[in-house]
Amino acid sequence: MNVDSLYSRTAKPHLAISVLAQAYGLKDKAGWSLATARKQVQADRNPQSKIHSILYRPFDVRFIFYHEAVIERPRPEVMRHILAGENVGLVLPRRVEHTGPWQHVFVTNALVEHVAVSLKTIDYCFPLYLSPSTTAPDMFQQTKRPNLAEWLLPKLTAAYGFTPTPEQMLAYIYAVLSSPPYRARYVEELRIDFPRIPFTADPNIFCRMAALGQELIELHLLRKKVRVAGVRYQGQGSDTIERVRYEAATGRVWINNDKYFENITPEMWEYQIGGYQVLEKYLKDRKGRALTDPIRYIHIAEAIAQTIAYQVQLNNLYVAVEMAVIVP
């Protein structure tokens, strides 16, 4: 759906309120009415500027009409940092309810839906940079600054002999959170509170972890395209997703009786981020609709294949992190 189409569905100036309410299942409630909301939207001089990308589920980026008249909890105190300019942030929950392995972290450069990663509990967004407030300048900083504890960079600079960039810090943290040994060792703590990050005392290990973490960030934002698994979209006929099924013997993911993706390994198909089996969830959320972006699905599958390979490298590298850590 393009931006103009989304706006036209939101405003609908030619439709009666009753028709609009029935078409989209909208009901008035305390503090909100459809009639008032539509008037506010129609009075906005530039409503198209309120349409933004939003991370709906891992790798599943959609559009949202981010207007205070129609969003119940827009959380501008956090999301304004994402909207202010180029930025990136970690997405993770404070706690998880399932009993399996912890895998509840992703990265975003867009707005975030509240269960984008965690299936049952609320996710939090941690932007790398904090931007000045335009509505309360006396209460917030006046220049863009890294969202890091003030003591952290001086401590690492003294230990490493150089000052890590904010981007290196984020990449290192993402590598730690993506490391299977870290997830296994602290699984009980990760279920009940935010992660605690061990910082290696070895500058070489820090740089190697940050380099892997940056590769993961590029992959997960789909800014880096890889071809490691040879995933292809095959078959003739309709692109409508009717029934999603996976054949481990052939490595095929069928979307109907005629079309399929091939070279999907069981590890790729079963790979989970948070509460979602990524490759299955992406297709099932589009059931009954035409798959208009098979190339994107290929990029997602390839990114997962490369992520699995990087996590194998992190198995050994993370062990070196905890051999000597910096004490706050």
Rank of each mutant, 00 (worst) to 15 (best):
E242I: 15
C207S: 15
K224M: 07
A110C: 12
R289E: 15
A309R: 15
A324P: 02
D202K: 05
V3P: 01
T134V: 12
H220C: 05
L26D: 09
L291R: 06
V244T: 12
W254R: 08
K281M: 14
L221F: 03
Y233D: 08
T108R: 00
R73P: 02
N315M: 15
P74W: 07
Q236W: 02
W269T: 06
R9K: 15
K225N: 00
S131F: 14
A21P: 04
N204K: 14
K50D: 15
E68I: 11
G213M: 02
I122H: 11
L177I: 10
V96G: 03
R243Q: 15
D60Y: 03
R296T: 12
W151P: 00
P203S: 08
Y24E: 14
R94S: 09
Y318E: 04
T121R: 11
F206G: 04
L152G: 09
K50G: 06
Q48V: 12
Y271I: 02
L152T: 07
L111C: 00
G161R: 05
S33Y: 07
Y260G: 00
S118E: 01
N109F: 01
M1K: 03
N204A: 14
P76M: 12
P101Y: 02
P154C: 08
E267T: 14
Q311G: 06
I17P: 04
N2F: 06
D123K: 01
R145E: 13
Y174G: 07
E72M: 12
T163V: 09
R223V: 00
T143D: 10
Q311C: 08
Q48E: 10
A290F: 05
L212Q: 10
N147Y: 08
D293H: 12
L92P: 03
I197C: 09
K120V: 10
V117Y: 01
R80N: 11
H98D: 13
E150A: 12
E270C: 05
E242M: 14
E215I: 07
I197V: 15
V105M: 03
V325G: 03
P198L: 10
H98R: 10
D28R: 06
L170T: 10
T157I: 01
L212D: 02
A23C: 09
P137H: 00
E77Y: 11
A324Y: 04
P127V: 06
P164M: 13
D28F: 08
P328H: 08
L221K: 05
R75K: 13
G89D: 02
A301T: 09
R95S: 03
Q141W: 03
E215K: 10
E97M: 10
V244I: 14
D285G: 06
E218H: 07
N315F: 11
G251F: 00
L111M: 08
P180Y: 01
L212S: 04
S18F: 01
R73C: 01
P166Q: 04
V228M: 04
K259Q: 08
A84V: 11
F65L: 02
D4W: 01
K287H: 06
L128Y: 07
P146E: 13
E270G: 02
I71Q: 13
D258F: 10
Y66D: 04
A84T: 09
V88F: 10
Q142I: 13
D285S: 13
S179D: 11
A116F: 03
Q40M: 15
